[in-house]
Amino acid sequence: MQAERKSETLTGWLLAAPLTLVLLFFLILPIAMIFVVSFWGATEFSIYPAFQFDNYQFLFSSPVTYQVFAKTFMYAGVTWACTLVIGFAVAHFLAFHVRSLTWQIALFLLCTIPFWTSNIIRMISWIPFLGRNGIANSTLMELGIIREPLEWLLYSDFAVILAFVHLYTLFMVVPIFNTMMRIDRSLIEAARDNGASGFQILTNVIIPLTKPGIMIGSIFVVTLVMGDFVTVRIMSGSQSANVGRLISNDIGLLQYPSAAATAMVLLATVLIMIAIMLRFVNIRKEL
């Protein structure tokens, strides 16, 4: 009896071991490394082991850091709101308005088609479209809506957010659609029988039941936007910076310790944000 239990424990450990090892080597160890390096010192061309707070001190004393973090939050916030509205609308349409499963699957696949090409390509294809002499401007001008080309379409915060929304809306659609499909249709019928209007059904039945999906989607979008650097660089024409760019600039200039320190601060920020989000919804219930 005892031996049997022992072997069960052993099997348990063995089953957990591969994942633990993978996480240990490819997640915990690198992060620990970054943490250690963030206290190191750097000269122009090399880094040396040390235990100093210079990197953090510089980071927290520079007004640029706060500006850049504010900008990063702004990008994350606006992108989150846009992707949520669009993602929810698309998921709602797919889940409740499209009746046949075949069509649901077909339309869902349609949503994923843009993801068959690379991220960068999808982003860069906006540039000729939004440019001063691009399709958007020339169309608007031909229609007589504007006289002068709109300068803010490209190389602006607008362009950055547009690209983010385009790139990441699907990450919102998928989890929301998934939870919506699990909602028991009889609940909606019951609500209707009790005289609820369409809007009331949405706010009192569907939204509360889709919360876990919304939260999972939000975590995806927020972490992706917070960690991005290439979209911001390309779409803002290098004119705006977010935290990712700060890190990438430091790496480019061989300032690894300072990059590591910034990365640690970013990691902490994102973790806090996710912790707050998880306080609202228990997503484990859904997994």
Partner: peptide, 15 residues
């Protein structure tokens, strides 16, 4: 003063 310049440059880009 390269390091100083680089920091200033980062400020310029972020401003």
């Amino acid at each position: 003063e390269n390091q100083y310049m680089v920091r200033k440059w980062n400020e310029f880009i972020a401003s």
